[in-house]
């Protein structure tokens, strides 16, 4: 799967050589990089495609994120390729540190998202996209030990997003709702499904307000199944994102991940950087 990342970079280099690197969207409207590598907020894949490519452009992003909660740490790095604001390809590598067990879980994710309808700013109805994330654990020992059925899995989702100009006391309001069909335990880090539970539909949502063209604050909520009977919780965050220009963005968040693998009250900080070619 490491190849997927190289392929994205090579594809982008070819297009880059033709100087088609896209910057034709309005600042901040593509959002940032989500924990599984898709364009979105920090937790939720959004209907927007990552990168500033307009309909006749392509764009490539690289990103790295870290979430540090009470007993765990998650590092994610990856890339996102936007083809003509129609198709988004993404790759992410997650490293999940469990200091108590002196172990690190590693998962690779390739993502595909297709914009089906609309533009978050201009269309009358929300922008709609459909996406797929294929996730694969490098070592499934922990997942198997906890009773997971599989060590790789596929999520599919449908997302709707809309930016309302001036809707909140004159400030721009963005919302997104995503429905995901998944068997992932803790995003797949603890494997997929269990002996008794398989895929189920989970709802995720985000809302953000743009204080000005460079700064957004918002909240996210991600529903999750509890296939393993480990009291797996829904995830939530409150974030602030800074878009100084179209080449770079920084997102910081306070995250509440609830109980993870029996360890309760996993709250902490999230920091993410996205850079564009």
């Amino acid at each position: 799967m490491r190849k997927a990342g190289y392929i994205l970079v090579i594809l982008a280099s070819i297009f880059q050589a033709h100087a088609w690197a896209g910057d034709g969207k309005i600042l901040a409207t593509p959002g940032v990089a989500q924990a599984e590598g898709s364009g979105g907020g920090g937790l939720v894949p959004w209907a927007q495609l990552a990168g500033y490519a307009a309909s006749d452009e392509i764009a490539l992003n690289g990103f790295c994120s870290r979430a540090q909660v009470s007993d765990y740490r998650l590092d994610v790095c990856g890339a996102q390729l936007n083809l003509y604001d129609r198709v988004e390809l993404s790759f992410a590598r997650q490293k999940f540190d469990v200091p108590a067990l002196s172990t690190q879980l590693e998962q690779d994710i390739i993502g595909l998202k297709v914009r089906l309808y609309g533009d978050i700013v201009y269309s009358a109805w929300p922008q709609i996209s459909a996406g797929w994330q294929h996730k694969s654990l490098k070592d499934g020992a922990v997942a198997n030990l906890l009773g997971a059925e599989d060590t790789s899995g596929d999520d599919i989702y449908l997302a709707a997003s809309k930016l309302h100009l001036g809707a909140l006391q004159g400030y721009n309001l963005l919302w997104n709702v995503t429905a995901r069909y998944t068997a992932a335990n803790e995003m797949g880090l603890l494997g997929y499904g269990s002996a008794s539970e398989g895929k189920s539909l989970q709802l995720e949502s985000s809302a953000a307000v743009f204080i000005n063209r460079h700064w957004a604050v918002g909240v996210e909520y991600r529903q999750k199944p509890d296939n393993l009977g480990l009291k797996e919780d829904d995830w939530a965050d409150v974030f602030v994102a800074w878009f100084p220009n179209k080449s770079f963005s920084v997102t910081a968040a306070y995250v509440d991940l609830g109980t993870i693998a029996g360890a309760p009250d996993q709250t902490g900080w999230y920091l993410s950087f996205v850079g564009s070619l």
Partner: peptide, 12 residues
Amino acid sequence: KVRVGFLAFIIL
């Protein structure tokens, strides 16, 4: 968390 999430959404 459900309450916080939806409350924030309603306020917005």
